[in-house]
Design a protein around this nucleic acid. Structure first.
Ligand code: MN
Ligand code: MN
Ligand code: ZN
Ligand code: ZN
Lengths: 145, 145
DNA sequence: CCATAATTGAACTTGATTTTCAATATCATA
DNA sequence: TATGATATTGAAAATCAAGTTCAATTATGG
């Protein structure tokens, strides 16, 4: 998305950071993938375009993308951070299939509202939340008889 | 809780595993703590009772406790697994204070029900889920003016 | 073009967790 | 109770994701 690129440029400029080929390539790769990817997966895609780019630069750039509001990190239960598009992609929660790994995005105003109510009851000011529902997707259920 | 001990003994027996002093001590330590603890915190408590017990044994035993249904692992967002009592402690979700680290346990049938409905809509069979709400607790809010 | 400071990749470090391995402990059976 | 097969242990090493160091390179304003 062209808009995300402009936002990243503006972010770099505002922070006194520089525009580099590596950052361009990594942003392009990230914008071109749809889903939830680990740093390693992003690194692999980036490597195809430009094998000289190192792991460290990918990690560093992903962090910038998060700071710029273009990427968002999420933990499923496997001990590594995954990243998804944030720009132009509102808050949502996840259904994660424990068979095939597929991730389905969900959003339900009723759940969101109930969470806020519950937090308020405890005197708690909610800032962000994460709901992961692990289970078996339709396809995997069929596949298994 | 005496019952948890019996369950653990039965679990070990059923799996052909052995009853050892170390496992006893670690289970006792775990049952004696109330809250959400990392392996390292459990190790520290265990060490007070018996400084000879190693890290590896603590990790190994925690895994057994999870398999036996006595402990349950949860990830908050800080990159280390935490453990809580599972036996005699039903499912619940968590409010996590990003200032003081306090964890408040919550349960809301309405949220649980809405989740099941949402999953069903997607043809998804939910098995377990995890909801963490990060924010600022009542005390921390007061403390900050 | 120059000077300055940001950036990079490779190698190294960190921190949590797991594995390896030789020594030791458990426990069913004789 | 003694025996022996096998599970367990602690220390050290390995792993795995992620972050840091540093000398060489590059971007950018003047
Ligand atoms: Mn998503
Ligand atoms: Mn809890
Ligand atoms: Zn599936
Ligand atoms: Zn607090």
């Amino acid at each position: 998305m062209e808009n995300a690129k402009r936002i990243f440029d503006a972010f770099l400029c505002a922070k006194g950071l520089r525009h580099t080929d590596q950052r361009d390539i990594i942003l392009d790769a990230f914008l071109g993938m749809e889903g939830h990817f680990s740093a390693e997966e992003i690194y692999r895609i980036v490597s195809e375009k430009n094998p000289e780019i190192g792991y460290a630069t990918v990690y560093r750039t992903i962090k910038l993308l998060c700071d710029a509001g273009i990427a968002r990190g999420i933990y499923f239960d496997d001990g590594r951070m995954r990243y998804e598009h944030k720009y132009g992609h509102g808050h949502h929660d996840h259904l994660v299939c424990i068979r095939c790994g597929k991730v389905i995005e969900i959003f339900d105003p009723q759940i969101e509202k109930a969470q806020d109510r519950l937090a308020k009851e405890k005197g708690f000011v909610p800032i962000r939340h994460q709901l992961n529902i692990f289970g078996v997707c339709k396809e995997c259920r069929k596949r298994n008889k």
